[in-house]
């Protein structure tokens, strides 16, 4: 029982990060109909900015803010400088370009920082607190929950309640009509990329200290898990991404806890395959046809 409780909280903590990263994928998918395979590399780049800022100033929090800013900026730059010019006649084109970006970003990071793992610090203790005799959750886990929760509430508020959120949704659903109504569709697209990339950077900041450390490839496996989470939830559904992230986090935690950590990469792929076979649109795909 104690082990189960521990694995559950550990799974939810990882799942929260997967949910955030999956949400970033969903944001770009909804805005631009692109699965951003470069998201892991972009997020790592933002995490390296944090590393440099923290190394120079000694402050984790300045590094944290720098990663967010770098993520936002990088997203807008990738859209404006690269993705905007990709021909969308074949859905494969943006995928190939995104994979090219992965190679480019990882190579540049390797040239600047070297290809070794660097320890990444945390602002809170990672040792689990005991509650009623059970080792349950660490202060850092609580920090992860709070950060991801806050970010989701902020995103939901931006999209549902603010004028710019309404513009972004309109631009994504109906670009031509939106332009006729005075919406700067290109600007909204860049903003969508920026937000998604900022969310990805945040997820990287949260997850990298709990893994092997900072490395140009540090987010590769996280990306696979988050991609699975997004597919589980349905690429079009932000709440689906959140639920999918938590599901994937729990599954991975139970598999590694009860069956051995060697099996976790396999478990992700099995889950991905199962969802694609049973519900290719994801668990949260709308039942009726979307376009009228």
């Amino acid at each position: 029982m104690e082990r189960f409780v521990f694995l559950t909280f550990d799974g939810l903590s990882r799942g929260a990060v997967y949910a955030a990263f999956a949400l970033a994928l969903v944001l770009i998918w909804r805005a631009a109909r692109i699965v951003n395979f470069a998201q892991g590399a972009m997020a790592v780049a933002a995490a390296y900015v944090a590393y440099s800022v923290t190394a120079a100033t000694g402050s984790y929090w300045l590094g944290f803010l720098a990663a967010l800013a770098a993520g936002l900026l990088l997203g807008a730059v990738v859209d404006r400088a690269v993705m905007r010019f990709v021909d969308h006649t074949s859905p494969l084109n943006p995928v190939i370009v995104a994979l090219g970006l992965v190679l480019l970003i990882q190579a540049v990071l390797g040239m600047i920082y070297g290809n070794e793992f660097r320890p990444a610090g945390t602002p809170f203790d990672r040792a689990a607190l005991t509650v009623g005799g059970f080792a349950v959750v660490s202060p850092y886990d609580l920090f992860v929950f709070a950060t991801v929760g806050l970010m989701m509430v902020a995103l939901a508020w931006i999209f549902a309640r603010t004028p710019v959120g309404l513009r972004m949704r309109a631009a994504a659903f109906a670009p031509e009509v939106s332009r006729l109504l005075g919406v700067n569709v290109g600007g909204m697209l860049a903003l969508g990329w920026a937000l998604a990339s900022g969310v990805g950077a945040l997820a990287a900041m949260l997850v990298i200290p709990t893994e092997l450390g900072l490395h140009p490839n540090a987010m590769d496996l996280v990306f696979v898990s988050a991609f699975t989470a997004a597919v589980v939830g349905g690429l079009d559904s932000p709440p689906g991404a959140v639920v999918g992230g938590l599901v994937v986090g729990l599954v991975l935690s139970y598999v590694s806890g009860y069956a051995g950590s060697d099996l976790t990469p396999l478990a992700v792929l099995v889950l991905l395959l199962a969802v694609l076979l049973v519900r290719p649109g994801g668990l949260f795909a709308p039942v009726t046809a979307r376009r009228v």
Binding site: P163, L166, R167, A170, F173, V177, G182, V292
Partner: peptide, 24 residues
Amino acid sequence: HVPEGRGVIGELTVDENLRLGGLW
């Protein structure tokens, strides 16, 4: 310009569609 096929954005509510018309 009210385009052919009317251009109502089906994924937005009636109120959101109307607000969109005045956002600029």
